[in-house]
Simulated scan of single mutants.
Amino acid sequence: METSNAPQVPASVPVMTVERFSELSGLTADTIRGQIQQGNLPFIKVGRRRLVNVALLTAECMNAEDWS
C-alpha cells in the first residue's frame, strides 16, 4: 500500500503561520507576505507574528459570487 507524501492539514485549523501556508499552497513565503500586505489574504496578528486566517479565507471563497 502506498503512502501519500501530500501535506495533511486538519479541516478545523482556523489560522496558520505564513511558512506553513506557504508549504501547503506551493507559494513562496515572500509571495504570501506580499498578498497579506496588499490585503488579498486575511490575517490576524498575534504578538509580532502574522497568521493567515484560513477560516475567513475559506468563508470568503465559499461566499464568492463565482463559486459554483
Rank of each mutant, 00 (worst) to 15 (best):
E2H: 12
N5Y: 08
P7Q: 02
P10H: 13
A11F: 14
A11I: 15
P14A: 05
P14L: 02
P14I: 04
M16F: 07
V18Y: 05
E19N: 09
R20H: 13
R20I: 15
F21C: 03
S22P: 01
S22F: 06
S22M: 02
E23F: 01
E23R: 05
L24T: 08
T28Q: 14
A29V: 12
T31Y: 05
T31C: 08
I32C: 00
R33L: 00
R33A: 01
G34S: 12
G34F: 06
I36Q: 03
Q37G: 12
G39A: 15
G39T: 10
G39C: 11
N40C: 06
L41Y: 09
L41W: 01
P42V: 11
F43V: 11
F43W: 07
F43P: 03
K45T: 14
K45A: 15
V46S: 12
G47I: 04
G47T: 03
R49P: 05
R49N: 06
R49G: 05
R50S: 09
L51R: 00
L51W: 05
A55H: 11
L56Q: 03
T58E: 03
E60N: 11
C61R: 12
A64C: 13
A64W: 10
E65L: 14
E65M: 10
D66H: 10
D66T: 14
W67V: 09
W67D: 04
W67L: 09
